[in-house]
């Protein structure tokens, strides 16, 4: 009863939060663009559709064409798909691993906590990108899935740390004690008592991981370690630099992919701040 009322209250504030509205709106726009954008174009991302090479945006080529005459709009919408795929897979993996380790460490405590803590700290210190690129460099063929898995497996420490701290503080609460005394298994307690009580936290962790995965993928792609068999927003930017888009002033080649990333990640941050305000009454503006 009380939980229900609380949910309604969250919903009430969630629907009225500007930052959340703006963030969700932007994300929705790009999701729709990724989903239906390819239907709007007659071209394939790598087709040389314009024989004369690069042209500025026009009614025929909405975002212009590349140095080779490929349609930028097609590349961007396909790249968006890749970006969302990597972000969902990568952040999903990172959040899951982080949850598993964070719950275990925070709930069990003791030596297990110590070990996980040291492990987390080690992976936290190692620059993710360095590990990603040394692995990616040795892969002859790189797929989007592979990239997502790599990103996910190096990004979990943030989540693990945050979730551990939360679990730790929840573990001594009455309702957890009660469940423990009634002989519930740790697994059940974690997923039926602890996890629901930090749902807001998990959601926000996932959102941050989502944005992080997008930025990581863009970096990897830009250094030349992106997928070998697909197009992505980072790759578009890499190609544009490689083929002199700057020198020839072909701004339509490098502005859209970067702008898309910035808007998506910015929208995610905005959502996160909005959610924080919804869940923490103290932050709500009066």
């Amino acid at each position: 009863m009380k939980a229900l009322k609380q949910k309604n209250e969250f919903l009430y504030f969630a629907l009225r939060n500007r930052k959340l509205q703006i963030g969700l709106g932007v994300i929705l726009f790009f999701v729709l663009l990724a989903a239906f954008g390819p239907l709007l174009t007659d071209y394939e991302p790598f087709d040389y559709v314009n024989p004369t090479g690069p042209v500025a945006p026009s009614s025929k080529y909405w975002l212009g064409t590349t140095f080779f005459g490929q349609d930028v709009f097609t590349q961007v919408v396909m790249g968006l798909r890749a970006t969302f795929l990597i972000a969902i897979l990568g952040s999903g993996i990172a959040t899951l691993v982080g949850m598993l380790l964070g719950f275990l460490a925070g709930y069990r405590g003791g030596i297990l906590d110590e070990i996980i803590n040291v492990l987390t700290n080690i992976v936290l210190v190692i620059p993710t990108m360095a590990v990603l690129l040394i692995i990616a460099a040795y892969l002859q063929v790189r797929s989007l899935t592979m990239e997502s898995i790599l990103i996910g497996l190096t990004a979990w420490p943030w989540a693990a740390r945050a979730i551990r701290a939360q679990t730790f503080s929840l573990r001594t609460r009455d309702f957890v004690d009660m469940a423990r005394m009634s002989g519930e298994s740790s697994f059940k307690i974690i997923f039926s008592e602890i996890a629901p009580n930090m749902m807001s936290y998990l959601v926000m962790t996932f959102i941050l991981q989502f944005g992080g995965a997008i930025l990581n993928a863009a970096t990897l792609d830009f250094i030349g370690l992106g997928p070998t068999n697909a197009i992505s927003l980072g790759l578009i930017m890499q190609y544009s630099m490689m083929w002199g888009a700057l020198q020839f002033g072909m701004w339509w080649w490098f502005v859209p992919p970067g702008l898309a990333i910035t808007l998506i990640v910015g929208a995610l941050y905005s959502m996160n701040v909005g959610l924080d305000e919804v869940f923490n009454p103290k932050l709500r503006e009066m």
Partner: peptide, 16 residues
Amino acid sequence: YILTATPYMWLGILLA
């Protein structure tokens, strides 16, 4: 927020 959301390479490209 927009600045932190900007990929490093893109801001670099824009400035260049």
